[in-house]
Write a protein that binds this DNA or RNA. Structure first.
Lengths: 87, 87
DNA sequence: GACTTATTTGTGCAAATGTGCAACTATTGG
DNA sequence: CCAATAGTTGCACATTTGCACAAATAAGTC
């Protein structure tokens, strides 16, 4: 759980998540890269971290990689923590 | 929000939160220090971070400081994020 | 195959972070 | 006042982290 929170607890990574929140369809890395003003290599690494924690899902589409949010799963994990904390 | 997640996204800090989850009554720092096996100074710093993010509340009791979890507030913030992510 | 585009990876660096120890500051109790 | 206890802070150190740039990989297009 700490790893998930750490993944979400970085400003640019959370920005990527918020950006994906607004997208009904998967987005490629170049598009996502624009929302946080960092190099594409940096966005790539951030997205990799998010993928490792199951926050985003990657779908290969030719030479592009389309990212989308694992909405239900992430929401469920956050709610589980909230429930545990509320006791 | 990123700051809250960052505060929770560190192993020992999350351990402190879990420990406080189990406590019906406020606990002092020495007691909490035992749950994660670190120096008392480290626990002090972690608790300070958690307090700054509103995760825990401090109550002075003589020479001790009693910590308790802001259960409702933290749970609400996590659920708000979950709602936003689920869209 | 050569070229273009999208993305990842290697590298180096500066800043942030977690840690333990020792010294310091309360605050209580004798 | 003095000793003991609880907690904080300064310091040094090791590790991690985020970043940019350049090079490498991958895949479509001509």
């Amino acid at each position: 759980m700490a790893d998930l929170l750490k993944a979400l607890g970085e400003f640019n990574r959370l920005s990527l998540v918020y950006e994906l929140c607004e997208c009904a369809k998967p987005r490629n890395a170049m598009c996502l890269c624009d929302c946080c003003s960092v190099d594409s290599s940096v966005a790539s690494r951030h997205l990799k971290v998010l993928a490792q924690e199951g926050v985003v899902r990657i779908e290969r589409k030719g030479r592009e990689r389309m990212y989308s949010l694992n909405r239900a799963e992430v929401a469920a994990r956050l709610r589980a923590l909230a429930d545990q904390i509320e006791g």
